[in-house]
């Protein structure tokens, strides 16, 4: 017993032959498969599992539809950008100032009608009536009285309008309203042609055709210039006269810039 105790003490102290022999024997290890299994389980337990990826099965129509959508979007974007920049999508046909078409030009180009103060007032009345009637297009307006600036298709409607509006003009209520809002109207008249929506309304009411697009005047002038350079002096002069009639608001500086001061003088004379 004493011997066994001594052996145990020696063994526990680490001075044992038994321990050395034990550790010298084959040291087996767990298999790699087992290691991987346990380590992967440990990782899965700690690291939150990623959400299962939703597999999108690509249909055969996805690609063409996406391409079509892309093209539609890009085209619409280009159109919108061009419209916003003020450039026409399709270039307007050049004004032909050839002798045979000069008459046609004078027929085609409608002179912008001079808007007089009375017309403005009538237009304002018309707008006012529209507002009162909730913007209904079928309601007759006061501007029916301006028969000369109306298209023929609206003649009957204008007559009705005149019939309806006439008693209203006789009434005192309308006159009072006019006298009260004189300043307001004058102010509105100043800004009437400046604001685009209002301008559109006025143009529609007096049948104003804003067919003179941006750049058309320059094109006409360039055409005239080319005609002058080609030696067609009479045609160029005629074309300039037409141009002067159709573009009364075109600045002289601009004309001089395009034609050149010498040609401008020659055409004026």
């Amino acid at each position: 017993m004493v011997n066994e105790e001594k052996e145990l003490d020696d063994y526990l102290e680490g001075n044992s032959e038994l321990s050395n022999q034990y550790h010298a024997s084959a040291m087996v290890e767990p298999s790699e498969r087992l290691n991987e299994k346990i380590l992967s389980a440990a990782k899965d337990a700690v690291i939150p599992k990623h959400k299962k990826k939703v597999l999108v099965h690509k249909s055969p129509w996805v690609r063409p539809v996406s391409i079509a959508a892309m093209i539609t979007l890009s085209v619409s974007l280009v159109v919108t950008m061009q419209q916003e920049s003020g450039q026409p999508l399709i270039s307007a046909p050049e004004l032909s100032i050839e002798p045979h078409s000069s008459t046609a030009l004078s027929e085609e180009i409608v002179m912008p009608q001079t808007v007089t103060a009375d017309d403005d007032i009538l237009v304002l009345d018309e707008l006012e009536l529209r507002q009162r009637n909730g913007g209904r297009a079928d309601v007759p307006t006061a501007s029916g009285a301006v028969g000369s600036s109306r298209s023929e298709s609206n003649t009957d409607v204008m007559k009705d309008e005149a019939a309806i509006i006439k008693p209203a003009k006789k009434g005192t209520l309308k006159q009072k309203a006019r006298s009260k809002e004189t300043e307001k109207r004058v102010f509105a008249k100043e800004h009437l042609l400046k604001s685009a929506p209002m301008e559109a309304d006025v143009a529609a009411s007096v049948n104003f055709k804003p067919d003179l697009q941006v750049g058309q005047g320059e094109k006409s002038l360039l055409k005239i210039k080319s005609m002058w350079e080609a030696g067609k002096y009479s045609e160029a002069k005629k074309g300039y006269q037409e141009f002067y009639k159709t573009h009364p608001g075109f600045s002289v500086e601009k004309i001089k810039e395009i034609l050149g001061p010498d040609l401008y003088q020659a055409l004026i004379l």
Binding site: M27, V28, E29, P30, N35, I38, L39, A42, K43, V46, I47
Partner: peptide, 26 residues
């Protein structure tokens, strides 16, 4: 560390003890 979410800590722990525990069981 492993309880806190460190999987690498578990690997270290496992590599230390896998042999002895396996032999103990075997």
């Amino acid at each position: 560390q492993y309880v806190a979410g460190d999987a690498v800590a578990f690997e270290s722990l496992y590599s230390r003890h896998k042999g002895p525990v396996y032999r103990y069981m075997l």
